[in-house]
């Protein structure tokens, strides 16, 4: 694979970010909803319509892939590209948080 054009994918929306974060292990939709709610301390809830839209977009961008199906539940996992995009998003967020902290210290 050549260079990845991260600007094509970033920044991720809050919903998309948490879906990708939850997919560090293969999961189906409802398990993702529960995991995201727990991870975010209840601050991010994903409605089924929103989650389905995120699945559609991420699958089209080849950031996630269906790996199994269990009783009408699609199980998704991150692709290699998905992992790289998520890592780049985290790197950029860390820079943003670092900048904000530095400014707060000088204020």
């Amino acid at each position: 694979m050549g260079d990845i054009h991260y600007s094509k994918y970033l920044p991720l929306s809050e919903a998309t970010f948490y879906v990708m974060l939850a997919l560090n292990e293969p999961l189906h939709g409802y398990a993702i909803m529960q995991k995201v709610e727990t991870m975010s301390g209840g601050s991010v809830t994903l409605g089924p319509g929103t989650l389905y839209g995120v699945f559609g977009t991420l699958e089209k961008q080849a950031l996630i892939v269906k790996v199994a199906e269990e009783e009408r539940r699609k199980v998704y996992a991150l692709t290699e590209l998905g992992r790289k995009v998520l890592a780049e998003q985290v790197r950029r967020l860390e820079i943003m948080v670092g900048n904000a902290r530095a400014l707060q210290r000088t204020a």
Partner: peptide, 17 residues
């Protein structure tokens, strides 16, 4: 209490709808 009752929880989803 504490149970989400929206099918669309982001504006992207609402706009798509």
């Amino acid at each position: 209490a504490g149970v989400a009752t929206e099918i669309y929880t982001d504006n992207t989803g609402r706009i798509r709808r």
